[in-house]
């Protein structure tokens, strides 16, 4: 996974809340069997509207999406994260995220940061007043900065470390393979199996 330490870029101020993963990428775009190439599905229905934020020249090159609360609720589709990444977003800021989406984002090097409504409102206002405003999302300092404004954010220490190192979860878990094997040797024999016993 890509490492994430800090990123500076422009903001796309998406003034919407409850943006579920069906809005981020509709199901018809989920048929690919690859992990890339989902950028055309991002906000596909909204992008048909010429006035939609990402169709405006001023926000076309934004790399930080700042959006309303409950972003990424609904379906577990990791394609939502891939679409945001493929489109060019490096970070998403919102007051609150859907749990599965948040987990998925952090496994793909897309930083999701929770800031209070008031901070999100300020960022929206800044980006609307001047789309060229540069904003920094800093995972090292756990801080979002814009000009002389700065907002701290909380971040789970383990997830932060994993993100900053770009570590692969599977490899981390397999360090404890002996514990997995020990657990398996103690499982009740009556637990259901989909196939005849393998081990």
């Amino acid at each position: 996974m890509d490492k994430f330490t800090t990123h500076t870029g422009r903001v796309a101020p998406l003034r919407r809340s409850n943006v579920d993963t069906d809005q981020i990428i509709p199901a018809v775009y989920l048929k690919r069997v690859t992990k890339t190439g989902f950028e055309d599905g991002l906000f596909a229905e909204w992008r048909e509207d010429e006035q939609f934020l990402l169709n405006q020249e001023a926000y076309k090159h934004a790399t930080i999406l700042v959006t309303g609360t409950e972003f990424g609720t609904g379906s577990s589709r990791e394609h939502a994260v891939w679409a945001l990444k493929d489109y060019g977003f490096k970070a998403v800021v919102a007051p609150r995220f859907g749990d599965i989406f948040r987990g998925n984002s952090l496994k793909n090097g897309l930083l999701t940061v929770e800031l209070p409504e008031a901070a999100v409102e300020e960022l929206w206002a800044l980006a609307e007043a001047n789309p060229d405003t540069e904003v920094t999302v800093d995972l090292v300092a756990c801080e979002v900065r814009a000009g002389d404004r700065a907002w701290g954010f909380e971040f789970d220490e383990f997830l932060r470390w994993r993100m900053m190192e770009g570590l692969d979860d599977v490899a981390l878990t397999l360090r404890d393979e002996d514990k997995i094997a020990a657990y398996e040797s103690n499982r009740d024999a009556w637990r259901p199996r989909t196939l005849p016993a393998q081990v």
Partner: peptide, 16 residues
């Protein structure tokens, strides 16, 4: 779970 976690479960039968 997401697809990264699907891979994790396939490989390890566990999830953090």
């Amino acid at each position: 779970i997401g697809t990264s976690e699907v891979e994790h479960v396939l490989a390890t039968q566990t999830l953090p």
